[in-house]
Simulated assay, not measured.
Amino acid sequence: MNELVLYTHPYSRGRIAHWMLEEVGQPHRIEWAEFGPAMKTPEFLALNPMGKVPVLTHGDVVVTEAAAICAYLADRFPDSGLAPVAHDSARGPWYRWLFFAAGPVEQAVTAHSMGWQVPEGKDAFVGFGSYARVLDTLEKAVSAAPYLCGEFSAADVYVGSHLGWGMMFGSIEKRPAFEEYVARLQARPAAQRADRINAERIEAMQKKA
């Protein structure tokens, strides 16, 4: 069987992959995984030795890491239009922004949130350079056009998720360009469906507690 199954938690990066699944529009199943011991069982560690979500299984294929899941789904289901075709000039920027968010953005935001300071003159030794430079680069990118690669794509799902959650929790400073970009993405029906499903799960968890 080639069933698509997403292991996720509503308070995790799994929400990025969940949104992506809704955009792809293929039948899938959600397996809600609890934090703690449930993610450290032999069965779960066989899927992801890191003991964390998201994890996507597609038949015998196992994909972890939200950016990789977005890229896999976009390529596996090309009719969804979520990745530029191989010979399209937009393919380069598509790779660029997926990897930029998974690398420099993730690193810069984590360092900023933890209060880690790069010693003066040592910017070249870290992949993100500086928090301010990363945000300035993102601001320029999302201001240039409605979407990062011309048409809406998996890159917008991934980058937009980082910006949306970062601004919500204060790890990314609010800028008008960021807010306009995220609002445009959050208006998509697929994003709203994923948010509604996760909100329902949160409500169920709270009632159970």
Rank of each mutant, 00 (worst) to 15 (best):
V62S: 09
S130E: 05
T64L: 05
F178P: 02
G150N: 03
G164R: 02
G160V: 03
A145L: 07
N198C: 06
R184E: 13
A183C: 12
D136C: 00
L138M: 10
R184H: 08
L56G: 04
L135K: 04
A144S: 14
R196L: 13
A86V: 13
V62N: 09
Y147V: 08
Y72P: 02
M114E: 14
V24M: 10
L4P: 01
R76Y: 09
Y181K: 09
P119D: 12
Y147C: 11
Y95H: 15
P84I: 01
P176I: 00
P78L: 12
A66C: 07
H87T: 15
M1H: 09
A71F: 03
I172K: 09
I16P: 01
P37C: 08
W97L: 06
R193E: 14
M20N: 13
R76N: 12
M114C: 08
F125A: 13
E22T: 00
V109L: 08
S143N: 06
M114S: 08
V118S: 13
S12W: 03
H18A: 12
G164Q: 02
G115E: 11
V142G: 07
A132K: 01
S153W: 01
K52R: 14
V53P: 09
D123Q: 15
K207R: 15
A144M: 05
T41A: 11
P42L: 06
L82Q: 06
V118L: 12
S12N: 07
V61W: 08
G51V: 00
E203H: 07
I30N: 03
A86Q: 15
F128E: 04
H58C: 08
A191K: 00
Y72H: 04
R133D: 15
Q192L: 06
S80P: 04
T64S: 10
C149Q: 01
P27K: 03
Y7Q: 14
K207A: 15
Q186G: 07
H87K: 14
D75L: 14
P78T: 04
G51P: 00
Q117E: 15
N2E: 15
P37D: 15
A108M: 13
R91S: 05
H87C: 13
Q206I: 09
R15E: 13
A68K: 04
